[in-house]
Design a protein around this nucleic acid. Sequence first.
RNA 1: GGAGCUGUCGUCUAGUGGUUUAGGACACAUGCCUGUCACGCAUGAGAUCGCGGGUUCGAAUCCCGUCAGCUCCGCCA
Length: 459
Amino acid sequence: MQRNLRLRHDITAAARKYFESRGFIEIETPIMAKSTPEGARDFLVPSRLNPGKFYALPQSPQLFKQTLMFSGFDRCYQVARCFRDEDLRADRQPEFTQIDLEMSFVEPDDVMKVIEELFLYIFKEVKELSDKEIKPDFTRIRWKDSMESYGTDKPDLRFGLPIKEISDIFKETSIKFFKDTLKKNGCIKSIVINDASLLSRKELEILTDIAKDCGAGGLLWIKTGYGLEFQSPVSKFLSETEKRDLIKNLNLKENNLLLIVADKFEVVCQALGTIRNYLGEKLKLINKDEFKFVWVYDFPLFEWSESEKRIVSKHHPFTKPDKNTICYLKSNPLKVNSLAYDIVLNGEEIGGGSIRINDSNLQKEIFNILELDEKRIEENFGFFIKAMEYGIPPHGGIAIGMDRMVMLLGGLDNIREVIAFPKTQSAVCMLTGTPSTVTEEQLREVFIKVIEENKEGKK
RNA sequence: GGAGCUGUCGUCUAGUGGUUUAGGACACAUGCCUGUCACGCAUGAGAUCGCGGGUUCGAAUCCCGUCAGCUCCGCCA
Protein backbone atom coordinates (compact mmCIF):
# COMPACT_ATOMS: atom_id res chain seq x y z
CA MET A 1 0.00 0.00 0.00
CA GLN A 2 2.77 2.40 0.91
CA ARG A 3 4.53 1.63 -2.33
CA ASN A 4 1.25 2.19 -4.21
CA LEU A 5 0.57 5.59 -2.67
CA ARG A 6 4.13 6.61 -3.35
CA LEU A 7 3.78 5.52 -6.96
CA ARG A 8 0.58 7.54 -7.14
CA HIS A 9 2.35 10.57 -5.75
CA ASP A 10 5.24 10.20 -8.18
CA ILE A 11 2.87 9.94 -11.13
CA THR A 12 0.81 12.96 -10.02
CA ALA A 13 3.95 14.97 -9.43
CA ALA A 14 5.33 14.06 -12.84
CA ALA A 15 2.04 14.98 -14.49
CA ARG A 16 1.99 18.40 -12.80
CA LYS A 17 5.57 19.02 -13.86
CA TYR A 18 4.74 18.00 -17.42
CA PHE A 19 1.69 20.27 -17.71
CA GLU A 20 3.54 23.16 -16.20
CA SER A 21 6.31 22.76 -18.78
CA ARG A 22 3.70 22.73 -21.54
CA GLY A 23 2.16 26.02 -20.55
CA PHE A 24 -0.94 24.64 -18.84
CA ILE A 25 -2.16 26.32 -15.71
CA GLU A 26 -3.88 24.43 -12.93
CA ILE A 27 -7.24 25.92 -12.00
CA GLU A 28 -9.46 24.58 -9.24
CA THR A 29 -13.21 24.56 -9.83
CA PRO A 30 -16.08 24.23 -7.35
CA ILE A 31 -16.84 21.00 -5.55
CA MET A 32 -20.21 22.43 -4.57
CA ALA A 33 -21.65 22.47 -8.05
CA LYS A 34 -24.85 22.05 -9.97
CA SER A 35 -26.87 18.92 -10.47
CA THR A 36 -26.83 17.79 -14.09
CA PRO A 37 -29.71 16.07 -15.83
CA GLU A 38 -27.55 13.80 -17.98
CA GLY A 39 -25.19 11.11 -16.85
CA ALA A 40 -24.58 9.38 -13.57
CA ARG A 41 -26.54 9.88 -10.36
CA ASP A 42 -25.40 12.97 -8.41
CA PHE A 43 -24.38 13.18 -4.78
CA LEU A 44 -26.51 15.94 -3.28
CA VAL A 45 -25.68 18.46 -0.57
CA PRO A 46 -28.53 20.41 1.01
CA SER A 47 -28.20 24.18 1.23
CA ARG A 48 -28.98 25.74 4.62
CA LEU A 49 -29.16 29.25 3.19
CA ASN A 50 -31.40 28.17 0.34
CA PRO A 51 -34.08 25.94 1.84
CA GLY A 52 -35.12 23.09 -0.41
CA LYS A 53 -32.20 23.59 -2.75
CA PHE A 54 -29.20 21.38 -3.27
CA TYR A 55 -25.66 21.49 -4.46
CA ALA A 56 -24.40 18.49 -6.39
CA LEU A 57 -20.87 17.17 -6.19
CA PRO A 58 -19.37 17.33 -9.69
CA GLN A 59 -19.27 14.21 -11.85
CA SER A 60 -16.51 16.03 -13.67
CA PRO A 61 -15.46 19.69 -13.99
CA GLN A 62 -16.61 19.63 -17.62
CA LEU A 63 -18.68 22.82 -17.76
CA PHE A 64 -16.23 24.79 -15.66
CA LYS A 65 -13.33 23.71 -17.84
CA GLN A 66 -15.14 24.77 -20.98
CA THR A 67 -16.18 28.07 -19.46
CA LEU A 68 -12.53 28.77 -18.68
CA MET A 69 -11.82 28.32 -22.38
CA PHE A 70 -14.42 30.98 -23.14
CA SER A 71 -12.58 33.28 -20.74
CA GLY A 72 -9.31 33.04 -22.59
CA PHE A 73 -7.39 30.47 -20.59
CA ASP A 74 -6.35 28.48 -23.61
CA ARG A 75 -4.61 25.64 -21.78
CA CYS A 76 -5.76 24.59 -18.36
CA TYR A 77 -5.88 21.42 -16.33
CA GLN A 78 -6.62 20.18 -12.87
CA VAL A 79 -6.19 17.14 -10.70
CA ALA A 80 -9.91 17.01 -10.05
CA ARG A 81 -11.93 15.06 -7.53
CA CYS A 82 -15.08 13.69 -9.14
CA PHE A 83 -18.15 12.02 -7.68
CA ARG A 84 -20.65 9.57 -9.15
CA ASP A 85 -23.31 7.88 -7.09
CA GLU A 86 -23.31 4.53 -8.85
CA ASP A 87 -22.50 1.00 -7.74
CA LEU A 88 -18.87 0.14 -7.05
CA ARG A 89 -16.59 -2.30 -8.83
CA ALA A 90 -13.00 -3.46 -8.58
CA ASP A 91 -12.08 -0.55 -10.86
CA ARG A 92 -14.71 1.99 -9.74
CA GLN A 93 -15.07 4.15 -6.63
CA PRO A 94 -17.82 6.73 -6.05
CA GLU A 95 -15.18 9.35 -5.37
CA PHE A 96 -12.21 9.40 -7.70
CA THR A 97 -9.59 11.63 -9.28
CA GLN A 98 -9.22 12.76 -12.85
CA ILE A 99 -6.46 14.60 -14.60
CA ASP A 100 -8.74 16.86 -16.53
CA LEU A 101 -7.52 19.20 -19.22
CA GLU A 102 -8.95 21.53 -21.84
CA MET A 103 -7.31 23.37 -24.74
CA SER A 104 -8.45 25.98 -27.24
CA PHE A 105 -7.93 25.78 -31.01
CA VAL A 106 -7.21 22.07 -31.14
CA GLU A 107 -8.06 19.00 -33.20
CA PRO A 108 -8.33 15.49 -31.74
CA ASP A 109 -4.80 14.81 -32.85
CA ASP A 110 -3.42 17.69 -30.75
CA VAL A 111 -5.05 16.39 -27.59
CA MET A 112 -3.85 12.85 -28.28
CA LYS A 113 -0.29 14.09 -28.80
CA VAL A 114 -0.36 15.93 -25.46
CA ILE A 115 -1.49 12.79 -23.66
CA GLU A 116 0.96 10.47 -25.43
CA GLU A 117 3.78 12.77 -24.47
CA LEU A 118 2.42 12.91 -20.91
CA PHE A 119 2.72 9.14 -20.68
CA LEU A 120 6.17 9.12 -22.23
CA TYR A 121 7.17 11.70 -19.65
CA ILE A 122 5.67 9.67 -16.80
CA PHE A 123 7.46 6.53 -17.95
CA LYS A 124 10.69 8.51 -18.02
CA GLU A 125 10.30 10.47 -14.77
CA VAL A 126 8.70 7.97 -12.41
CA LYS A 127 11.50 5.85 -11.06
CA GLU A 128 9.55 2.65 -10.61
CA LEU A 129 8.57 2.77 -14.28
CA SER A 130 11.82 4.06 -15.75
CA ASP A 131 13.76 1.36 -13.89
CA LYS A 132 11.87 -1.31 -15.78
CA GLU A 133 12.84 0.34 -19.07
CA ILE A 134 9.43 -0.36 -20.56
CA LYS A 135 8.35 1.69 -23.51
CA PRO A 136 4.65 2.42 -23.77
CA ASP A 137 3.14 1.58 -27.12
CA PHE A 138 0.44 3.75 -28.75
CA THR A 139 -1.86 2.75 -31.59
CA ARG A 140 -5.21 3.99 -32.87
CA ILE A 141 -8.33 2.16 -33.90
CA ARG A 142 -11.77 3.26 -35.10
CA TRP A 143 -14.60 2.39 -32.77
CA LYS A 144 -16.28 0.29 -35.46
CA ASP A 145 -13.09 -1.65 -36.19
CA SER A 146 -12.50 -2.24 -32.51
CA MET A 147 -16.00 -3.64 -32.13
CA GLU A 148 -15.58 -5.83 -35.23
CA SER A 149 -12.17 -7.23 -34.31
CA TYR A 150 -12.27 -7.33 -30.52
CA GLY A 151 -15.96 -7.14 -29.65
CA THR A 152 -15.39 -4.19 -27.32
CA ASP A 153 -14.59 -0.49 -27.33
CA LYS A 154 -11.71 -1.12 -24.93
CA PRO A 155 -9.60 -3.77 -26.63
CA ASP A 156 -6.68 -5.46 -24.93
CA LEU A 157 -3.99 -5.44 -27.60
CA ARG A 158 -1.46 -7.40 -25.59
CA PHE A 159 -2.62 -10.50 -27.43
CA GLY A 160 -4.15 -11.47 -30.79
CA LEU A 161 -7.15 -13.77 -31.18
CA PRO A 162 -9.04 -11.31 -33.40
CA ILE A 163 -12.70 -11.89 -34.11
CA LYS A 164 -13.49 -12.68 -37.77
CA GLU A 165 -16.67 -12.00 -39.65
CA ILE A 166 -17.93 -15.15 -41.41
CA SER A 167 -21.54 -14.20 -42.18
CA ASP A 168 -20.96 -14.19 -45.94
CA ILE A 169 -19.77 -17.78 -45.97
CA PHE A 170 -23.15 -18.90 -44.67
CA LYS A 171 -25.42 -17.02 -47.08
CA GLU A 172 -26.83 -20.30 -48.41
CA THR A 173 -26.49 -22.26 -45.17
CA SER A 174 -28.76 -25.11 -44.17
CA ILE A 175 -27.94 -24.62 -40.49
CA LYS A 176 -31.20 -23.37 -39.07
CA PHE A 177 -29.99 -20.95 -36.39
CA PHE A 178 -27.47 -19.42 -38.79
CA LYS A 179 -30.23 -18.92 -41.33
CA ASP A 180 -32.52 -17.35 -38.72
CA THR A 181 -29.80 -15.03 -37.50
CA LEU A 182 -28.94 -13.77 -40.97
CA LYS A 183 -32.61 -13.31 -41.81
CA LYS A 184 -32.91 -11.01 -38.79
CA ASN A 185 -29.91 -8.96 -39.95
CA GLY A 186 -27.67 -10.55 -37.35
CA CYS A 187 -24.14 -11.71 -37.99
CA ILE A 188 -21.91 -14.74 -37.55
CA LYS A 189 -18.43 -14.31 -36.17
CA SER A 190 -15.63 -16.53 -35.05
CA ILE A 191 -12.43 -16.74 -33.06
CA VAL A 192 -9.81 -19.19 -34.29
CA ILE A 193 -7.55 -20.97 -31.84
CA ASN A 194 -4.48 -22.56 -33.35
CA ASP A 195 -4.19 -25.54 -31.06
CA ALA A 196 -7.56 -27.18 -30.43
CA SER A 197 -6.06 -29.39 -27.73
CA LEU A 198 -5.61 -26.34 -25.46
CA LEU A 199 -9.30 -26.41 -24.62
CA SER A 200 -10.88 -29.43 -23.00
CA ARG A 201 -14.51 -30.40 -23.32
CA LYS A 202 -15.07 -28.80 -19.94
CA GLU A 203 -13.48 -25.54 -21.04
CA LEU A 204 -15.82 -25.46 -24.01
CA GLU A 205 -18.72 -25.80 -21.58
CA ILE A 206 -17.43 -22.81 -19.63
CA LEU A 207 -17.07 -20.79 -22.83
CA THR A 208 -20.62 -21.73 -23.79
CA ASP A 209 -21.87 -20.47 -20.45
CA ILE A 210 -20.01 -17.19 -20.98
CA ALA A 211 -21.68 -16.81 -24.38
CA LYS A 212 -25.10 -17.55 -22.90
CA ASP A 213 -24.54 -15.07 -20.06
CA CYS A 214 -23.88 -12.46 -22.73
CA GLY A 215 -27.29 -13.14 -24.25
CA ALA A 216 -26.21 -15.45 -27.07
CA GLY A 217 -28.14 -18.62 -27.82
CA GLY A 218 -25.00 -20.65 -27.43
CA LEU A 219 -21.51 -21.23 -28.72
CA LEU A 220 -20.78 -23.39 -31.75
CA TRP A 221 -17.39 -25.03 -32.09
CA ILE A 222 -15.72 -26.62 -35.08
CA LYS A 223 -12.43 -28.53 -34.88
CA THR A 224 -10.26 -29.23 -37.88
CA GLY A 225 -8.78 -32.69 -37.51
CA TYR A 226 -6.27 -34.54 -39.67
CA GLY A 227 -6.67 -33.70 -43.34
CA LEU A 228 -8.76 -30.72 -42.29
CA GLU A 229 -11.69 -32.97 -41.53
CA PHE A 230 -14.35 -30.89 -39.75
CA GLN A 231 -15.53 -32.09 -36.35
CA SER A 232 -18.51 -30.25 -34.92
CA PRO A 233 -22.05 -30.72 -33.69
CA VAL A 234 -23.10 -29.26 -37.07
CA SER A 235 -20.47 -30.93 -39.26
CA LYS A 236 -23.03 -32.88 -41.29
CA PHE A 237 -24.85 -29.63 -42.15
CA LEU A 238 -21.74 -27.91 -43.49
CA SER A 239 -21.57 -27.85 -47.27
CA GLU A 240 -18.31 -28.42 -49.13
CA THR A 241 -18.36 -24.80 -50.30
CA GLU A 242 -18.74 -23.55 -46.75
CA LYS A 243 -15.87 -25.74 -45.55
CA ARG A 244 -13.68 -24.54 -48.42
CA ASP A 245 -14.50 -20.88 -47.73
CA LEU A 246 -13.84 -21.26 -44.01
CA ILE A 247 -10.46 -22.84 -44.70
CA LYS A 248 -9.60 -20.12 -47.20
CA ASN A 249 -10.92 -17.06 -45.36
CA LEU A 250 -9.68 -18.04 -41.92
CA ASN A 251 -6.52 -19.67 -43.22
CA LEU A 252 -7.31 -22.85 -41.28
CA LYS A 253 -4.74 -25.52 -40.58
CA GLU A 254 -5.03 -28.92 -38.96
CA ASN A 255 -6.01 -29.00 -35.30
CA ASN A 256 -7.56 -25.52 -35.27
CA LEU A 257 -10.60 -24.69 -33.17
CA LEU A 258 -13.30 -22.28 -34.29
CA LEU A 259 -15.57 -20.69 -31.72
CA ILE A 260 -18.63 -19.28 -33.43
CA VAL A 261 -21.47 -17.07 -32.23
CA ALA A 262 -24.42 -16.06 -34.39
CA ASP A 263 -26.73 -13.34 -33.12
CA LYS A 264 -27.37 -9.60 -33.20
CA PHE A 265 -24.18 -7.57 -33.73
CA GLU A 266 -24.13 -6.32 -30.13
CA VAL A 267 -24.62 -9.77 -28.65
CA VAL A 268 -21.94 -11.34 -30.85
CA CYS A 269 -19.49 -8.59 -29.88
CA GLN A 270 -20.27 -8.96 -26.20
CA ALA A 271 -20.01 -12.76 -26.26
CA LEU A 272 -16.87 -13.15 -28.37
CA GLY A 273 -15.26 -10.12 -26.73
CA THR A 274 -15.72 -11.65 -23.30
CA ILE A 275 -14.54 -15.05 -24.53
CA ARG A 276 -11.51 -13.45 -26.13
CA ASN A 277 -10.51 -11.80 -22.87
CA TYR A 278 -11.12 -15.01 -20.96
CA LEU A 279 -8.91 -16.93 -23.39
CA GLY A 280 -6.21 -14.27 -23.20
CA GLU A 281 -5.88 -15.03 -19.49
CA LYS A 282 -6.59 -18.74 -19.68
CA LEU A 283 -4.14 -19.50 -22.47
CA LYS A 284 -1.57 -17.17 -20.87
CA LEU A 285 -1.27 -15.01 -23.97
CA ILE A 286 -0.80 -11.84 -21.96
CA ASN A 287 2.62 -10.42 -21.19
CA LYS A 288 1.98 -8.70 -17.87
CA ASP A 289 4.97 -6.40 -18.28
CA GLU A 290 3.59 -4.77 -21.39
CA PHE A 291 1.77 -1.43 -21.63
CA LYS A 292 -0.36 -1.30 -24.78
CA PHE A 293 -2.14 2.01 -25.17
CA VAL A 294 -4.75 2.36 -27.86
CA TRP A 295 -6.81 5.36 -28.90
CA VAL A 296 -10.34 4.44 -29.84
CA TYR A 297 -11.91 7.12 -32.03
CA ASP A 298 -14.79 7.70 -34.42
CA PHE A 299 -17.35 6.84 -31.77
CA PRO A 300 -21.06 7.17 -32.47
CA LEU A 301 -22.33 10.48 -31.09
CA PHE A 302 -25.43 8.88 -29.58
CA GLU A 303 -26.70 5.50 -28.54
CA TRP A 304 -30.14 4.11 -27.84
CA SER A 305 -30.94 3.69 -24.16
CA GLU A 306 -33.21 0.70 -23.70
CA SER A 307 -33.95 1.62 -20.08
CA GLU A 308 -34.88 5.24 -20.80
CA LYS A 309 -36.36 4.53 -24.24
CA ARG A 310 -34.61 7.50 -25.77
CA ILE A 311 -31.40 8.58 -27.45
CA VAL A 312 -28.57 9.43 -25.05
CA SER A 313 -25.08 10.84 -25.55
CA LYS A 314 -22.39 8.21 -25.86
CA HIS A 315 -19.79 10.61 -24.48
CA HIS A 316 -21.48 13.78 -23.22
CA PRO A 317 -23.85 16.35 -24.74
CA PHE A 318 -21.06 18.85 -25.52
CA THR A 319 -19.23 16.54 -27.89
CA LYS A 320 -18.84 17.85 -31.42
CA PRO A 321 -20.28 15.73 -34.23
CA ASP A 322 -17.96 14.57 -36.96
CA LYS A 323 -18.34 16.69 -40.12
CA ASN A 324 -18.57 13.65 -42.42
CA THR A 325 -21.66 12.25 -40.71
CA ILE A 326 -23.33 15.37 -39.28
CA CYS A 327 -25.67 15.34 -42.31
CA TYR A 328 -27.61 12.51 -40.62
CA LEU A 329 -28.25 14.56 -37.47
CA LYS A 330 -31.92 15.11 -38.33
CA SER A 331 -32.69 12.00 -40.38
CA ASN A 332 -30.88 9.34 -38.35
CA PRO A 333 -28.90 10.67 -35.39
CA LEU A 334 -27.63 7.20 -34.47
CA LYS A 335 -25.56 7.27 -37.68
CA VAL A 336 -23.68 10.40 -36.63
CA ASN A 337 -20.13 9.96 -35.39
CA SER A 338 -18.35 12.27 -33.00
CA LEU A 339 -14.97 13.82 -32.40
CA ALA A 340 -14.61 11.80 -29.21
CA TYR A 341 -11.67 9.62 -28.32
CA ASP A 342 -10.95 7.19 -25.51
CA ILE A 343 -7.56 6.05 -24.38
CA VAL A 344 -7.43 2.39 -23.42
CA LEU A 345 -4.56 0.73 -21.58
CA ASN A 346 -4.30 -3.08 -21.56
CA GLY A 347 -8.03 -3.46 -22.12
CA GLU A 348 -9.18 -0.88 -19.57
CA GLU A 349 -10.52 2.55 -20.38
CA ILE A 350 -8.35 5.06 -18.57
CA GLY A 351 -9.55 8.26 -20.17
CA GLY A 352 -11.79 9.90 -22.68
CA GLY A 353 -12.34 13.25 -24.25
CA SER A 354 -13.59 15.10 -27.25
CA ILE A 355 -13.61 18.26 -29.27
CA ARG A 356 -16.56 20.29 -27.95
CA ILE A 357 -19.38 22.06 -29.67
CA ASN A 358 -18.78 25.80 -29.97
CA ASP A 359 -21.90 26.77 -31.87
CA SER A 360 -24.97 27.59 -29.81
CA ASN A 361 -27.46 26.46 -32.47
CA LEU A 362 -25.81 23.09 -32.82
CA GLN A 363 -25.65 22.75 -29.04
CA LYS A 364 -29.39 23.47 -28.77
CA GLU A 365 -30.10 20.96 -31.51
CA ILE A 366 -28.17 18.28 -29.62
CA PHE A 367 -30.13 19.03 -26.45
CA ASN A 368 -33.33 18.69 -28.49
CA ILE A 369 -32.33 15.31 -29.85
CA LEU A 370 -31.63 14.25 -26.25
CA GLU A 371 -35.22 15.30 -25.48
CA LEU A 372 -34.21 17.76 -22.78
CA ASP A 373 -37.07 20.21 -22.52
CA GLU A 374 -36.51 23.93 -23.07
CA LYS A 375 -37.01 24.83 -19.43
CA ARG A 376 -34.49 22.25 -18.30
CA ILE A 377 -31.95 23.42 -20.87
CA GLU A 378 -32.35 27.04 -19.83
CA GLU A 379 -32.12 26.14 -16.15
CA ASN A 380 -29.06 23.91 -16.44
CA PHE A 381 -27.13 25.26 -19.37
CA GLY A 382 -28.54 28.74 -19.99
CA PHE A 383 -25.34 30.54 -19.08
CA PHE A 384 -23.42 28.13 -21.25
CA ILE A 385 -25.44 28.63 -24.41
CA LYS A 386 -25.45 32.38 -23.82
CA ALA A 387 -21.65 32.37 -23.78
CA MET A 388 -21.61 30.41 -27.03
CA GLU A 389 -23.83 32.99 -28.65
CA TYR A 390 -21.18 35.64 -28.02
CA GLY A 391 -18.68 33.44 -29.81
CA ILE A 392 -16.21 31.10 -28.19
CA PRO A 393 -13.03 29.49 -29.45
CA PRO A 394 -13.13 25.94 -30.75
CA HIS A 395 -11.79 23.77 -27.97
CA GLY A 396 -11.49 20.25 -26.67
CA GLY A 397 -9.94 18.23 -23.93
CA ILE A 398 -9.73 14.96 -22.13
CA ALA A 399 -9.89 13.45 -18.66
CA ILE A 400 -7.64 10.65 -17.47
CA GLY A 401 -8.80 8.47 -14.59
CA MET A 402 -5.89 8.86 -12.19
CA ASP A 403 -6.77 6.02 -9.85
CA ARG A 404 -7.29 3.48 -12.61
CA MET A 405 -4.17 4.65 -14.40
CA VAL A 406 -1.99 4.26 -11.30
CA MET A 407 -3.58 0.88 -10.66
CA LEU A 408 -2.63 -0.37 -14.12
CA LEU A 409 0.83 1.18 -14.16
CA GLY A 410 1.42 -0.40 -10.76
CA GLY A 411 0.35 -3.80 -12.07
CA LEU A 412 -2.54 -3.94 -9.59
CA ASP A 413 -6.03 -5.25 -10.16
CA ASN A 414 -8.05 -3.25 -7.66
CA ILE A 415 -8.56 0.49 -7.50
CA ARG A 416 -8.70 0.44 -3.69
CA GLU A 417 -5.02 -0.46 -3.75
CA VAL A 418 -4.13 3.03 -4.92
CA ILE A 419 -6.57 5.06 -2.81
CA ALA A 420 -6.02 6.06 0.80
CA PHE A 421 -9.15 5.24 2.81
CA PRO A 422 -11.23 3.78 -0.03
CA LYS A 423 -14.91 2.86 0.25
CA THR A 424 -16.15 -0.73 0.46
CA GLN A 425 -18.47 -2.17 -2.16
CA SER A 426 -21.42 -0.76 -0.20
CA ALA A 427 -19.78 2.69 -0.31
CA VAL A 428 -18.84 2.71 3.37
CA CYS A 429 -15.56 4.00 4.81
CA MET A 430 -14.31 1.20 7.06
CA LEU A 431 -12.16 3.51 9.15
CA THR A 432 -14.67 6.19 10.02
CA GLY A 433 -17.93 4.39 9.40
CA THR A 434 -19.03 7.02 6.90
CA PRO A 435 -21.81 7.54 5.95
CA SER A 436 -23.48 7.97 9.32
CA THR A 437 -26.68 9.38 10.75
CA VAL A 438 -26.85 13.02 11.86
CA THR A 439 -28.81 14.72 14.62
CA GLU A 440 -32.38 15.94 14.26
CA GLU A 441 -30.97 19.40 14.84
CA GLN A 442 -28.64 19.18 11.87
CA LEU A 443 -31.44 17.90 9.66
CA ARG A 444 -33.78 20.72 10.74
CA GLU A 445 -31.13 23.27 9.87
CA VAL A 446 -31.10 22.10 6.28
CA PHE A 447 -34.85 21.49 6.12
CA ILE A 448 -34.56 17.76 5.60
CA LYS A 449 -36.77 15.00 6.88
CA VAL A 450 -35.64 11.39 6.72
CA ILE A 451 -38.27 8.95 5.60
CA GLU A 452 -37.96 5.68 7.52
CA GLU A 453 -38.92 2.69 5.44
CA ASN A 454 -36.55 0.24 3.85
CA LYS A 455 -35.16 3.12 1.93
CA GLU A 456 -34.00 6.47 3.22
CA GLY A 457 -34.82 9.44 1.08
CA LYS A 458 -33.86 13.04 1.23
CA LYS A 459 -36.45 15.80 1.44
C1' G B 1 -32.41 -5.00 -7.73
C1' G B 2 -29.98 -9.99 -9.20
C1' A B 3 -26.05 -14.13 -9.20
C1' G B 4 -21.80 -16.19 -6.90
C1' C B 5 -17.57 -16.61 -3.37
C1' U B 6 -15.72 -15.73 1.58
C1' G B 7 -15.99 -14.90 7.14
C1' U B 8 -10.91 -18.88 12.57
C1' C B 9 -5.99 -14.97 17.94
C1' G B 10 -4.01 -7.80 16.60
C1' U B 11 -2.52 -9.48 11.20
C1' C B 12 -1.96 -13.54 7.59
C1' U B 13 -3.67 -18.23 7.91
C1' A B 14 -3.96 -24.43 8.97
C1' G B 15 -8.02 -27.06 10.01
C1' U B 16 -14.29 -30.22 5.43
C1' G B 17 -18.32 -34.48 11.55
C1' G B 18 -14.65 -37.15 16.85
C1' U B 19 -7.52 -36.33 21.68
C1' U B 20 -8.95 -29.67 18.53
C1' U B 21 -7.80 -28.44 26.14
C1' A B 22 -8.59 -25.04 17.76
C1' G B 23 -2.27 -25.60 15.16
C1' G B 24 1.41 -22.24 12.79
C1' A B 25 3.79 -17.62 11.10
C1' C B 26 4.33 -12.40 11.94
C1' A B 27 3.25 -8.86 15.68
C1' C B 28 3.00 -8.39 21.27
C1' A B 29 4.99 -9.31 26.69
C1' U B 30 9.01 -11.24 29.94
C1' G B 31 13.90 -13.16 30.34
C1' C B 32 18.56 -14.58 28.14
C1' C B 33 22.17 -13.89 24.24
C1' U B 34 24.21 -10.38 20.91
C1' G B 35 28.32 -5.05 16.76
C1' U B 36 22.95 -6.80 16.07
C1' C B 37 20.29 -5.01 11.16
C1' A B 38 13.96 -9.60 8.12
C1' C B 39 18.96 -10.90 14.84
C1' G B 40 18.84 -15.62 17.64
C1' C B 41 17.03 -18.65 21.88
C1' A B 42 13.47 -19.63 25.82
C1' U B 43 8.92 -18.67 28.20
C1' G B 44 4.17 -16.35 28.06
C1' A B 45 -0.28 -13.78 26.93
C1' G B 46 -3.72 -13.65 22.96
C1' A B 47 -9.73 -16.98 19.27
C1' U B 48 -17.38 -17.15 22.88
C1' C B 49 -14.30 -20.13 15.02
C1' G B 50 -19.17 -13.04 12.19
C1' C B 51 -24.15 -13.53 14.58
C1' G B 52 -28.93 -16.47 15.37
C1' G B 53 -31.34 -20.99 14.78
C1' G B 54 -31.38 -26.24 13.19
C1' U B 55 -29.47 -31.47 12.11
C1' U B 56 -26.38 -34.87 15.19
C1' C B 57 -24.40 -38.78 20.76
C1' G B 58 -20.90 -34.99 18.92
C1' A B 59 -20.46 -28.92 14.57
C1' A B 60 -15.17 -24.19 13.14
C1' U B 61 -16.63 -28.28 9.79
C1' C B 62 -23.42 -30.08 7.37
C1' C B 63 -28.37 -27.17 6.65
C1' C B 64 -31.42 -22.53 7.06
C1' G B 65 -31.57 -17.41 8.19
C1' U B 66 -28.95 -12.91 9.06
C1' C B 67 -24.91 -9.43 8.93
C1' A B 68 -20.30 -7.99 6.83
C1' G B 69 -16.41 -8.17 2.99
C1' C B 70 -15.35 -9.40 -2.04
C1' U B 71 -16.34 -10.56 -7.58
C1' C B 72 -19.73 -10.06 -11.50
C1' C B 73 -24.62 -8.46 -14.07
C1' G B 74 -27.87 -4.24 -14.05
C1' C B 75 -25.98 0.86 -13.35
C1' C B 76 -21.37 4.07 -14.44
C1' A B 77 -23.64 11.31 -19.79
